[in-house]
Amino acid sequence: MAITKRDVEHAAKLARLALSQEETELYASQMAKILTHVEKLGALDTKGIEPTSYTISPKTIFRKDEAKPSLPQDEILSNAPEKAKGCFKVPRIIE
């Protein structure tokens, strides 16, 4: 399985990872090797086989729509790298 540097750069952008040049090259070769290994799945005929995403039967769980106490605001914000006026503060969004 050939993976180009451009494939890696595209995935890195989707994954929000600012990879260095060396990382991009390393991951291109390692991902190619791993994806070559998984190509063996192609040999199996899976036509009509339902995919399994959870091993237990998915069931919608209902509960009463009742208000319950949640964590206080200051505790939620206690780990924030930056906060202001009871909110998480982030760098400028509109550039």
């Binding site: 993976i3 890696v8 994954a15 990872l17 990879l19 991951y27």
Partner: peptide
Amino acid sequence: KTRDEGFGPEVKRRIMLGTY
């Protein structure tokens, strides 16, 4: 930058593989 600095090589490799 946060994610590149914060995650180690194996975690990045798996995020990349999964994203791809």
